[in-house]
Amino acid sequence: DSCIQFTRHASDVLLNLNRLRSRDILTDVTILVNRQQFRAHKTVLMACSGLFYSIFTDSHKCNLNAISLDPKVDPEGFAILLEFMYTSRLTLKESLIMSIMNTAIYLQMDHVVDTCHRFIKSSDPS
């Protein structure tokens, strides 16, 4: 028996989901971070974040079409994490690393938190 493994299939699907997001096609939730709004697909959010997984598997909350995050969350940090969810690329700017890490902790994105820890450690001269 033979099986064809398309090695770039996962990234091709993700690219298309990101195109759908940028064109606001089938996006089904607005995330409110302070006064900024981000449109996204619930399935992508819950596939990447423990917090969104808990929200959208809760039968009382799964039909919400807007979710307000804790006002302490930095919209810039959230934007970087949302971009990561849809592209697999995490932009780690030194000026934003703490807000990216704190937002990742809040969103329960443990692997990203670990990566931020390593980045901070590697940039610490002491």
């Binding site: 028996d1 493994q5 090695t7 299939h9 699907v13 690219l15 298309n16 195109r19 064109r23």
Partner: peptide
């Protein structure tokens, strides 16, 4: 998948949704 001969296909797997119509 044990015993299955897996062939790697490195080309695009699906159509690409355009940025805008």
């Amino acid at each position: 998948y044990e015993g299955v001969n897996t062939i790697k296909e490195r080309g695009r797997s699906i159509h690409e949704i355009p940025r805008q119509d």
